[in-house]
Design a protein around this nucleic acid. Structure first.
Lengths: 201, 201
DNA sequence: GATAAAACTTACCACGCGGTAAGGCGCGCC
DNA sequence: GGCGCGCCTTACCGCGTGGTAAGTTTTATC
């Protein structure tokens, strides 16, 4: 996974994988009938992990805003914990559009609809802005969490190296996601509630 | 460029390029000393086009909000006009982090600082939210415009095929970018000003 | 402790890749 | 009108790739 994520499928040779793992190339071909199958297994493992993690992530108890915070930061942490996840998914989207479409439709689609429904309730209650195109919003947030993490190593040249840059990235992304979702009153309440932690506006 | 963008550097063979172009593989190697040099030329062409386009894009006259709209939609259009631009840049970020850092620092950095300064003026005037981390904000917006365009073919499975999906994507991105940048009053003014075009809230 | 299956190695192969060498061809120029 | 020089082709090459075949070691099982 590390190699596929960093160099891409084509640029990753079985030989290189073997060396990293510490066995021979043919040992790999013993466990996986082909390079393609190995790649599929890596992807399946990733999707599996996701599907095991996501439910409990979404079911974390708490009030509306707290839950938003929890889910959102957990989503970001999921990618940040291992940026290769973001990289490999992004590569997959670029390299195999057709297969990705199916995967997106089948595994992301349902979850997105669930969260979308949740947001729509908030819209009716006036907590979330009425103008939000819920699905589009979710796609964007998901996408920037992913792409942002995948390219963090590079964009750090603009935002600062190490944790400092990542912190800025994460914080601003959270701010954007909130500011564009919650109605001004709620958003302000949220922001002032947060800033008391450090700055105390 | 089309091939590099779609399949990536490694997966693109000189033979394939030759067939598309309609000449022999060696004819390519006559004009470019190596595959690597061809790739560099493609990238240089892209960067050149960008640097030729960007200035006049940013100098489009108009008031604050109108200018934001113009610049923003033009940025999106730049990628949407040819999604391969977004794809190839994204691939470059993934495939060659080191080289990308330099490029980002040298060609994107200055422009970003210029726009950032502009936004900061808006912050002092109260038009733009004070909490915005300007550089981080710009990176996010740029990133999602790029990643969104690059993966539009795939995410269309969630947002709808063809122009409909792209329209939703573009509209929501614009909304997010505005809602999270402008102070609520200004944002609302902006939104209601726009909606008169079609809906008349 | 025999046996069988799983895990792995050694040896090998065809193929397609990027790249080199050398020659032909046509066009402009004095 | 020949001469040089880009432009492109044909022929060829070494190399590393993913993959196969067959043999060897390790492990589990009773």
């Amino acid at each position: 996974m590390r190699l596929f994520a960093h160099r891409g499928y084509e640029a990753t040779t079985l030989q290189a994988v073997a060396e990293v793992v510490g066995i021979s190339k043919q040992a790999i071909l013993h466990h996986f009938r082909s390079k393609e199958e190995l790649h599929a297994a890596v992807l399946a493992e990733l999707v599996g992990h996701w599907q095991r993690t996501l439910p409990q992530l979404l079911l974390t108890a708490g009030a509306t805003k707290v839950r938003f915070d929890a889910v959102f930061s957990e989503l970001l942490a999921f990618f940040a914990r291992d940026p290769d996840r973001a990289r490999i998914v992004l590569r997959e989207l670029l390299d195999r559009p057709e297969e990705s479409r199916k995967l997106l439709k089948d595994v992301v689609g349902p979850w997105m609809e669930a969260i979308a429904a949740y947001i729509r309730v908030g819209q009716e209650r006036g907590v979330h802005r009425a103008e939000v195109d819920v699905e589009a919003y979710l796609v964007q947030v998901l996408q920037i969490a992913m792409a942002g993490t995948a390219t963090a190593e590079v964009t750090s040249v603009l935002l600062g190296e190490g944790t400092a840059g990542r912190e800025r990235f994460a914080k601003e992304l959270a701010r954007i996601a909130q500011a564009s979702l919650f109605t001004p009153r709620h958003a302000n309440a949220e922001i002032s509630a947060r800033s008391t932690h450090k700055e105390g506006t």
